[in-house]
């Protein structure tokens, strides 16, 4: 079998932050890959390390205070972490596009929308201002902003949140990147606008380009993604195809997460199944499996050792002792 190179291959990535209270482990020994044409969802609760993981790829996490302790981020075969800053800038925006969470703060408040798009375009392509302006205008129309011609002259604050996010999408896509990183692109938007934005992202995505979508919303994952990565307390706890994760969640955390989503019309006054306790602080993770104090199936071993990831199929793996065959009797409740 010929091993083809993945678009993005992250191996044993560990990122820490220096804070006054000590060293915080934000990403702990994370490995995953994203292939051409895929949409991969990265889910987890706030503080799980999703954004740090994603922003480490275009090296947008400020250092200091952050530091990549070890690991490699291979993008088209080249390790981005070893790249010098000049080469990195050629990749950022051109080959890796980013859609940020809050378009209101990600866009410059001092520059007109048109000028910001032109800047993004001319950064990587040898275009005259006029050509770039025309291209930018056509992109605004592409992302379905009405009156694109006039909207080129407005400032971001004159646009609604949904419109600002469209500008962000246009800016990220204008270079037709191979990998698009979308960090909670619709969290700040209303559901009807969210649906519009997702339709747009789906339509605009090139067939062979990949997307890493960060979200806390399992519903969004279901609608947009091919594959899912679940993070808990800085670690990857489960990875699998969408159907595998939704129909056979292997890790108790994924299971709890799926169950605690309120479903439409399940009935009034029904208690939602919830995960007890709360996400542990990154300064003070529990020993052993980091989910052990919240896990309904935890047993002795969970408090002492960290579970290794277990492959359930070619595409599905999870880190839990319940999946280790000899532990199954008695304690297995999945």
């Amino acid at each position: 079998m010929i091993m083809t190179e993945k678009l993005l291959d992250i191996k044993n990535l560990t990122v820490t932050f220096k804070t006054d209270d000590g060293r915080v482990l934000a990403v702990d020994d994370l490995s995953f890959s994203v292939d051409y044409g895929e949409t991969v969802g990265l889910v987890g609760e706030s503080g799980a390390g999703k954004s740090v993981t994603a922003m480490s790829i275009p090296r947008l996490v400020p250092s200091p205070p952050s530091q990549v302790e070890h690991g490699e981020i291979r993008f088209k075969g080249r390790d981005l972490l070893k790249m010098n800053i000049r080469d990195m800038r050629k990749i950022r925006g051109k080959e890796i596009g980013v859609i940020f969470q809050d378009p209101g703060t990600a866009l410059s408040p001092l520059h007109r929308v048109g000028n910001q798009l032109v800047e993004a375009l001319r950064m990587h392509r040898n275009l005259s201002f006029k050509e770039a302006w025309a291209t930018a205008e056509s992109w605004l129309a592409n992302v379905k902003i009405p009156d694109a011609k006039e909207r080129m002259f407005v400032y971001p604050h004159q646009l609604s949140g949904g419109m600002q996010q469209r500008v962000m999408i246009a800016m990220a896509l204008i270079q037709e990147p191979d990998l698009m990183i979308a960090d909670e692109p619709t969290t700040a938007l209303d559901v009807t606008i969210q649906a519009q934005v997702f339709n747009l992202i789906r339509d605009m995505k090139k067939n062979d380009s990949a997307m890493l979508l960060i979200t806390h919303d399992m519903g969004v994952v279901w609608e947009m993604c091919d594959r899912v990565l679940v993070m808990y307390a800085s670690q990857l706890v489960e990875e699998g195809l969408k159907d595998e994760i939704f129909s056979h969640p292997a890790h108790p955390y994924t299971e709890g997460l799926l169950k605690s989503i309120p479903s439409l019309g399940a009935g009034t006054g029904k208690r939602l199944p919830s995960i007890r306790g709360q996400v542990p602080s990154a300064l003070d993770y529990p020993k052993g499996c980091r989910f052990n104090d919240r896990c309904p199936h935890a047993f002795d071993r969970c408090e002492k050792e960290s579970p290794e990831s277990v492959h359930l199929s070619k595409t599905h793996r999870a880190s839990c002792f319940l999946l280790v065959p000899e532990q199954k009797e008695g304690t297995h409740g999945l």
């Binding site: 609604s160 559901v191 009807t192 969210q194 339709n199 994952v221 279901w222 939704f246 439409l264």
Partner: peptide, 19 residues
């Protein structure tokens, strides 16, 4: 109701236009 993303929901959504 259509716009709420729900795991397991199939079929095309009616997405309303505008804001």
């Amino acid at each position: 109701i259509d716009a709420v993303p729900v795991p397991g929901k199939q079929g095309k959504k009616r997405v309303i236009k505008g804001e």
